[in-house]
Design a protein around this nucleic acid. Structure first.
Lengths: 226, 226
DNA sequence: ACCTGAACACCGTTCAAGT
DNA sequence: ACCTGAACACCGTTCAAGT
């Protein structure tokens, strides 16, 4: 049974709450938190079963009683991060709500850049992912969008947020040395004049501004319900 | 020097063409191709240095003469795949050109789903990535968009294509068994009524249709140059 | 210059054994 | 029920040695 699949999640939901951890013992949530700490501080490559166990003061083989594999841990980690997304109604209409929720989603992803690539591992079917779906669909449908169109809008915005976060997390050229390295790189590549000329905005984009620009364009293009 | 960084690519561009492979010997391009075959057939996890070497009839340690690390191989693999993107002018205006280029980009990504997550590893600064940038910026600027805005539009569309491809590649519920598993999963989760009601379009989306919808909305929202 | 063989440190996972 | 210790197969990478 592949970690993150619908079948896997079903078994997971069924098992939830059945655990009764001993005080001070291991527990899925504690493991996930330790994993997130490692990933945030040192990146995905540093996240090994042995390292998680070490940080928790336990042998690495003990982890396998709570999580069947490293892949399962990664799936749980993703939903754990999605749990930090707390959207709320603005009271200023569906567009404002959508922008607020998208911005909140983006904020959380940028706070955990190493986790973002994991969003591509499979479908997002954990409890926190579904809560976000329910919220997004609800605000669109209450605004009068017909369901099929609400799904389109929801998915498009979600994809946009993830897409920009991905390139923001992995891509942006931060720091002076990377910046000068970029300039030197393009200086030696006269075959790409526009890329060279526009190197500054292309490689040192203001991610937030670019995000706002794209989201506005996207929502502008959606029109209005009914 | 981190694989995929501007500094790394600069050294890489400088070294390019300096190799003179023996007939039948190893060569970066042949290694990259072998790697792509493995990844396409069996996914990213199957891509080990040992496996690549085995497929090429060579010892795995030999690869390190042509590529400094597995990470470097992955970076080269990404640009190799981007080389399959062949956009062309439609003669029907910038919007049609942009839609054609985005569709072509999407087509290539979907043909190599296991490679898509790698697009998030770092900046896309290889020769094929830069060629694509130059093309996209060129068509926008020739259409009359001012440079700063052309950069915005280019990045937004690129992010959208990658975002949708990511979720398409990893996410869609293909096959009957995954479909019924999904139904059963939601049947047990009454706390998400909309997610349950709209499970069909949410989890079995027609990716191409959804892509077209989003791209149209995006470009609609951009307006016109000048 | 290129490829090989042996070796090292590290990893995920399994399982019998302890409490 | 939970944790441990030992073990297995596998991995990326290094390097001296061959041609």
């Amino acid at each position: 049974m592949k970690a993150g699949s619908a079948e896997w999640w079903r078994a997971r939901y069924a098992a939830r709450g059945r655990q009764r951890p001993r005080p001070g013992g291991l527990e899925l949530k504690r493991i996930t938190r330790a994993a997130l700490d490692i990933v945030d501080a040192e990146g995905l490559a540093a996240l090994t079963m042995r390292r998680v166990a070490e940080d928790m003061g336990v042998r690495h083989t003990s982890l396998y009683r709570h999580v069947a594999s490293r892949d399962e841990l990664l799936v749980e980690l993703v939903d754990h991060v999605l749990g930090e997304v707390v959207p709320g109604a603005t009271g200023r209409g569906w567009r404002a709500d959508m922008e607020q929720a998208a911005g909140e989603f983006r904020r959380v992803l940028l706070a955990h850049p190493a986790v973002v690539p994991l969003l591509t591992m499979g479908q997002l079917l954990g409890p926190n992912a579904l809560r976000g779906r329910e919220f997004g669909l609800g605000l669109l449908i209450r605004a009068g969008w017909e369901p099929a169109r609400a799904v389109h809008i929801y998915l498009t915005v979600a994809h946009f947020v993830i897409g920009t976060a991905l390139l923001d997390a992995g891509g942006a050229a931060r720091g002076v040395e990377e910046r000068t390295a970029m300039t030197e790189l393009f200086a030696g590549l006269p075959q790409y004049p526009l890329v060279r000329e526009l190197a500054e905005p292309l490689n040192l984009p203001d991610g937030d501004q670019e995000f706002a620009f794209g989201l506005t364009a996207l929502l502008n293009g959606m029109g209005d319900p009914r």
